[in-house]
Nucleic acid binder design. Sequence first.
DNA 1: ATAGATGCAAATAATTTGCAGACCG
DNA 2: CGGTCTGCAAATTATTTGCATCTAT
Lengths: 150, 150
Amino acid sequence: MSSAEPAGTWQQRLRASGHRLTPQREMVLRAVEELGHATPDEVHAEVRRHSDSVNLSTVYRTLELLDDLGLIRHAHLTDRAPTYHSATGHEHAHLVCRACGRTTSIGRDEMEQALSGLAARHGFAPDYGHLTVFGTCADCRQGERGTLEP
Amino acid sequence: MSSAEPAGTWQQRLRASGHRLTPQREMVLRAVEELGHATPDEVHAEVRRHSDSVNLSTVYRTLELLDDLGLIRHAHLTDRAPTYHSATGHEHAHLVCRACGRTTSIGRDEMEQALSGLAARHGFAPDYGHLTVFGTCADCRQGERGTLEP
DNA sequence: ATAGATGCAAATAATTTGCAGACCG
DNA sequence: CGGTCTGCAAATTATTTGCATCTAT
């Protein structure tokens, strides 16, 4: 049904689309996979730890490219910067608590099952791996003591 | 159950929270209600059409205040700027097609029903009025001509 | 009268772009 | 070699903030 990962290694994937395999691209991809969910800035910092400098512009350009190729994905876990994560693992959506900031990953299957009826009804094919549901988690609903801004 | 609109008119709502009723705030609120879904910049432009100048800073400050008070709401309909909309109407979530950009409103009830199981399972209370589901609409799935790689 | 609100301009933050030189294939 | 990529610095875009002045209450 839904095509998830394109065939081939990421190296092949790059070449197949007429792009080149550079050390920067390899480092950025690794950083994203290690960090889990990270902003462009965090990826930049991580890359710098392992190797010498890679320019922030290059990080932005690379993240965009890898996202286009489907090698990584991005989601909006805050009202601010987008965060990137590996696409080689299992596709997942996110529940984000506004009170404590905690993020819970929801497997694609569970989310797909929940939205299947709605999706069918509207002839809409959701991008599950990009979906973020904001709200309040169990812990924060109990201890509800108003707003706690970090 | 879920407290949607606080009691009282928006004027009362403002005063009750220790804020003042200014012409700027009134104009911004009107603009948001007229525009449907609008970015801060669009709200600014709309306000200027009707009356003389209101500073963009004031628009930002006012949108934030009205959002905090629950008089308006915001959602992320693109990977970019947030858009604000009236909260006096029915609360709703959005389906956004990445291909054509079309936005479909989904009533709170329908979305709540779809996610109820998942929400209960995780003890999570979703903010339905903020939820945006990206994906591909029916029309665009047909005309599908693949991905456009550079 | 007076705390809160606005306008303005400058400060931040986040992201993008032009270009010359470096480098993959 | 030759077209891609990268680094760098400057340009954009988006949003926030300090402060003097104004105004709703």
